[in-house]
Design a binder for these strands. Structure first.
Length: 465
RNA sequence: GCUCCCUUCGUCUAGAGGCCUAGGACACGGCCCUCUCAAGGCCGGUACAUGGGUUCGAAUCCCAUAGGGAGCGCCA
């Protein structure tokens, strides 16, 4: 059997972190079993689905690297097929027409609620064969009245539902269009989905879908219902904390592999390992090991993981991303080798690549202002001559490598009997404008001799050194 | 209201009856390293929701209770 999983978002909003995790688990499972991952857009809600949302989902999936083997399929393009199945069911008697008006149904529900019962359709048209001419009708699935349905869920274990709790759901609206639960069933059957992996908010829909699948003579897929992701405060994910587009994570400077790693570790683990490459996730991930309980989204841990990935991945992996973020800050950076050096020296001091870009802009723009307080503290009367001496010595340095620069500066500091910091900080201020940068030798080396010396000269003139 | 699901440090988790005076990670505090900021190393505190069983023995099994969540649409 070839494993076939699917991710089936509805384009009524952006792809957020919860959807991405569902997609990831589907994708990982398919990859691990050399199966196929199918992308299906569930756009039957014509009112709320938008073209922008579709594009946004596609972009998000691409950024994350979760590439489908088949699709994207669109349910709106399959209406003929759904209609065909509905006709079949009507003919076979597994579905029937119901002529209740919306008002009638509302009234029925109101009465049931008043009696403390669960609101549901009472089956008043189930056995009728007549029709009301001129009155619009819907088509309902004839759900079994007795017995039970067992959803043998991979993460939850067997979950039993009584058929008596289930009512006859509408599969075709009065305008003839099919409804969600029905489309899912037909699609999963037609697309030969073997493993349905989705959020556990769908667990309650599963027995109905299973009954329909059985009525259609299809083989039931394996189900796995994933726990939800909550906001940092433990409440439902909202726009305030994480329910933003996954593309926002790209814009904020996160690596897709870090986001995926973080998502994988939400509800799943492999011993004490925290950092996983994509390959490791594929090799080690199994839905059977997924937890049952919901988990809260923790931004700090994601940031930490992002930095871990930045430090572990080859620097060239980061270069184009850094370039992209620099450009968004209005900095044009052409030199590949220089960018690589920046990544190497900055990645342990930034949680995100955006932060790295912000911290590295000074390499491309000479400081226009200097941290006043720091200047007062570090550029004291006694160090001014030393600064001049250092600048002069650097001017005579032919080998502009970090090692040579380091030898020169620390040699000078030693000769003068002062701590390295006494000299490094003023130089740092002169070339960066602030007190934070990579080690001073690396900073100067990356800057280049000409640029470094010109910045030093400018600062000296300003400070009267 | 009814049905279904969930419950180990603040957070993510390990834990499949004795290996648990509950392990790891993020965050937090302290120390070390140190030219800044980081990164790194070491140390520290904090958790089995509650109550009953079962058992020689329970975080682990069973039952209640409590709390949280989902579903109950001509939405998906």
């Amino acid at each position: 059997m070839i494993v076939r999983t699917r991710f089936a978002p509805s384009p009524t909003g952006f792809l957020h972190i919860g959807g991405l995790r569902t997609a990831l688990f589907c994708w990982l499972y398919a990859r691990r079993h050399s199966g196929q991952f199918i992308l299906r857009i569930e756009d039957t809600d014509l009112e709320r689905s938008t073209e922008a949302a579709i594009q946004q989902i596609l972009d998000g999936m691409e950024w994350a690297g979760l590439i489908q083997d088949e699709g994207p399929f669109f349910q709106t393009k399959r209406f003929d097929r759904y209609k065909e199945v509905i006709e079949e069911m009507l003919a076979e008697g597994t579905a029937y027409r119901c002529y209740c008006t919306k008002e009638e149904l509302e009234q029925m529900r109101a009465q049931q609620t008043a009696r403390g019962e669960k609101p549901r359709y009472d089956g008043r048209w189930r056995e009728r064969t007549d029709s009301l001419p001129g009155v619009p009708s819907v088509v309902r699935f004839k759900n079994p009245l007795t017995g039970e349905v067992v959803v043998d869920d991979v993460v939850h274990g067997p979950v039993v539902f009584q058929n008596s709790e289930l009512d006859d759901l509408i599969i075709a609206r009065s305008d003839g269009t099919p409804t969600y639960n029905f489309c899912v069933v037909v699609d999963d059957m037609d697309m030969q989905i073997t493993h349905v992996i989705r959020g556990d908010d769908h667990l309650n829909n599963t027995p109905r879908q299973l009954n329909m699948l059985l009525a259609l003579g299809a083989k039931a897929p394996v189900y796995a219902h994933l726990p939800m992701i909550l906001g940092a405060d433990g409440a439902k994910l909202s726009k305030r904390h994480g329910a933003v587009s996954v593309l926002q994570y790209r814009d904020d400077g996160f690596l897709p592999e870090a986001v995926l790693n973080y998502l994988a570790r939400l509800g799943w683990s492999h011993g004490d390992q925290e950092i996983f490459t994509i390959e490791e996730m594929i090799r080690l991930f199994d839905i059977a090991d997924v937890n049952k309980s919901a988990s809260a989204f923790n931004f700090e841990k994601l940031a930490w993981l992002n930095q871990q990935h930045m430090m572990h991945v080859p620097a060239v992996r980061i270069v184009p991303v850094l370039r992209w973020h620099l450009e968004r800050e209005g900095v044009q950076a052409a030199d590949e080798a220089q960018l690589e050096q920046i990544v190497l020296s900055q990645r342990e001091r930034a949680k995100t690549i955006r932060e790295m870009a912000l911290n590295s802009a000074f390499f491309f723009r000479a400081p226009v202002a200097y941290d006043e307080k720091a200047v007062r503290k570090h550029v004291t009367a006694d160090v001014r001559p030393l600064l001049a001496e250092a600048a002069a010595a650097l001017g005579g340095l032919d080998d502009w490598s970090a090692a040579a620069i380091h030898d020169l500066i620390s040699g000078l500091a030693a000769a003068k009997g002062i701590a390295l910091g006494k000299l490094a900080q003023p130089i740092r201020l002169a070339v960066c404008g602030g007190t934070v940068s990579p080690p001073i030798d690396a900073t100067l080396a990356i800057l280049g001799k000409a640029e470094a010396l010109s910045r030093l000269a400018r600062a000296q003139a300003l400070w009267g050194a």
